[in-house]
Amino acid sequence: MLEPERVVALRRRLQALEPLELEIHDDSAAHAGHAGAAGGGHYRVRIVSPRFAGLSRVQRHRLVFAAAGDLMQRGVHALAITALAPGE
């Protein structure tokens, strides 16, 4: 499957969390041009990683944001996250 450049970049960075499952959906088209979007993309991530076990939701999301790194400042306007530990 051909993925847009940003999805590929996001996928590559999120590999740092050693995901057992990783789905990235690009919802950008649904949000094009709305106020405050500033040209960035909207993405939805579902990630299952053993790294999340025992962590709070905020801690899990921080790990995802940290892994996404500079993409959060350039290119990614919104990132909806479902972060699960195996078995959840």
Binding site: R57, V58, M72, Q73, A78, L79, A80, T82
Partner: peptide, 19 residues
């Protein structure tokens, strides 16, 4: 936390929309 919205209850950061 790199995104908005952000919710705080009693001074504590709760999270964004998904949380």
């Amino acid at each position: 936390w790199p995104t908005i919205p952000q919710l705080y209850i009693k001074g504590e950061f709760i999270g964004g929309a998904d949380i």
